[in-house]
Nucleic acid binder design. Structure first.
Length: 256
DNA sequence: ATGGTAGACGCTCTA
């Protein structure tokens, strides 16, 4: 089976591309981020016609996460237990067959030292606590998929002078992500690309994609019962090409 | 320190 994760940067702007992507890859599960719509504007019916059930946790204009799947998801949950009243829509989870799937849009963090950066660090800590509280991670096959907004190692960064030390690539956020791995999660993409230099996001500006000035910030993290069954992982760079592309390319993982 | 582009929204914010 195939699991995909893709920050679509607006599901309205990416509607046609998303449907074509589903036809081309026929993934069993797709985690989406940055849908940027409220639930009532989410294209449930169009996706159902394309063969997918969908659950969505949205908000107006920003954020928004979804899980699409061939089989009907159950046990859906929205956000974190300690989310505030006006919390961003950044996490959705569901049971899909025997797997637990999480679609997460980690905060970007703005600039170092900003309020947004403090929110990012707090959110990473809250996610760790949420995962620990909610699941028996050693025994449950869980896939934590999404736009993590963290490049885990220098090998995941194209322009160190620009990006190292930024909100996306610094020791503090890398440690916070390490705290999530310490719960029992593995980056299942990395072993298939051991030399690094494979990216999932490129800035729209300054011909970022054409120059391959990217970062690997979209990830699939899996607990041991699932990680042991992963047999492949790729980035579909074609989805970053041409007019009407998201600034992120999808990551796909194949499971035996 | 800033700009470059894209998307949503509505004369600006987020990434």
């Amino acid at each position: 089976m195939k699991i995909a994760t893709w920050n679509v940067n607006s599901i309205k702007a990416r509607h046609e591309r998303l449907l074509a992507f589903l036809e081309r890859w026929e993934p069993d599960v797709v985690c989406l981020q940055e849908t940027k719509v409220q639930d009532e504007a989410f294209p449930y019916l169009e996706l159902r016609a394309a063969g997918y059930y969908a659950v969505h946790h949205g908000q107006r204009a920003y954020n928004g996460v979804a899980i699409l799947s061939r089989v009907e998801p159950t046990g859906v949950f929205f956000g974190m237990e300690d989310d505030g009243e006006e919390e961003h829509a950044r996490l959705i989870g569901a049971t899909v067959g025997e797997l637990t799937i999480l679609s997460a849009y980690f905060p970007n963090g703005g600039d170092m030292g900003s309020d947004k950066y403090a929110y990012k660090l707090g959110w990473l800590g809250r996610l760790r606590a949420e995962l620990e509280r909610r699941f028996e991670l050693s025994a449950t096959p869980v896939a934590l998929c999404g736009d993590f907004n963290v490049a885990p190692s220098p090998d995941d960064v194209s322009l160190p002078d620009l990006f190292e030390g930024s909100v996306l690539a610094n020791p503090e956020v890398r440690d916070a992500l390490g705290g999530i791995r310490a719960l029992g999660f593995t980056d299942v993409f990395r072993p298939f690309h051991p030399r690094g230099g494979v990216y999932t996001w490129w800035d729209y500006r300054a011909m970022g994609f054409e120059r391959n000035h990217g970062l690997r910030i979209d990830h699939v993290y899996a607990t041991a019962p699932l990680a042991s069954r992963v047999i492949g992982a790729v980035v579909d760079r074609r989805e970053r090409e041409g007019k009407g592309a998201s600034d992120h390319a999808p990551v796909l993982v194949e499971i035996e």
